[in-house]
Write a protein that binds this DNA or RNA. Structure first.
Length: 252
DNA sequence: ATTGAGACCTGTCGGC
DNA sequence: TGCCGACAGGTCTCAA
């Protein structure tokens, strides 16, 4: 999309999770994509019009680039580009999201304004994690899914990071908080586990389509723990409505 | 103010 | 084969 002009936008329905903004297709038509970036799980396309397109895949959304006009079920938005190809947004569950906002005010957009630090940035470290968890009575796993604590971490990698760090998902979040100025070892372990698991995932592009059994704990209920010499068996439980997987032996 | 439950929507899978 | 419930990678709103 970068450097291409959006000739025309086809909207196949009035909404995804929320209605498309007013005059959505018209505001995009004629604009050139200047840059594609990301914040948390939001994709951001800065346009020559001075507006930015915010996009979120939700649970089941995907984009494909195509040269043909063939359309599939759940194709909701088609961007026709000056290159001759089209970018198609497909989303069966329609938990996806799109909106337009002025680029110079993007950080004030409701979807972006409360977000915590990017996990792979220098701003996110043991100290930042410890401070964000201070006073939180919620379980540590729930705290990791709180986008104000760390931006863009989802259910799979929250659970994976806790296993790497050897921390129980049920532990109260405040127990990893700062102890007299210095972050605890647990906060150091967890912050670096988050960075590690995300860096690995990006490296292998595993998130693009997850395959069962490739994770340390996620989706491995009743299977053996993969930590060397640990004899534990992975358990599953529900926390705040989401599935948590963990090893009761090596995660404390 | 935090926190958890429920809602949003469709598809898939396992059990009967 | 078919029906039914459980569950799915996210986020928002609402009521304790």
């Amino acid at each position: 999309m970068v450097g291409r002009r959006i000739l025309q936008v086809e909207l196949r329905r009035p909404d995804l999770r929320t209605p498309f903004p007013r005059r959505f297709a018209q505001r995009l038509a004629g604009a050139t994509t200047v840059a594609l970036t990301r914040r948390a799980k939001y994709l951001l396309a800065a346009l020559s019009s001075g507006e930015s397109l915010l996009m979120h895949l939700g649970m089941s959304g995907s984009f494909r680039v195509t040269a043909t006009d063939a359309t599939a079920t759940h194709d909701h938005v088609v961007f026709h580009l000056s290159s001759g190809s089209a970018v198609v947004f497909n989303d069966p569950r329609r938990f996806g999201f799109m909106d337009l906002a002025r680029t110079d005010r993007l950080d004030r957009h409701p979807a972006l304004k409360g977000l915590g630090p990017e996990p792979l940035s220098e701003a996110f470290d043991a100290g930042a994690l410890a401070r964000a968890c201070a006073g939180k009575r919620t379980p540590l796993k729930s705290a990791l899914l709180d986008q104000q604590v760390v931006a863009g971490l989802g259910n799979i990698y929250a659970v994976e990071a806790l296993h790497i760090a050897g921390l129980s998902p049920q532990r109260q979040a405040s127990t990893i908080a700062t102890a007299g100025g210095e972050p605890r070892d647990s906060a150091r372990a967890l912050a670096s586990a988050i960075k590690q698991v995300l860096a690995e995932a990006i490296d292998r592009q595993t998130s693009a389509r997850y395959r069962a059994g490739r994770f340390r704990v996620y989706d491995r209920e009743r299977e053996p723990c993969r930590r060397p010499r640990c004899r534990g068996v992975i358990r599953r439980r529900t926390q705040a409505g989401r599935s948590t997987f963990y090893c009761p032996v090596c995660q404390r």
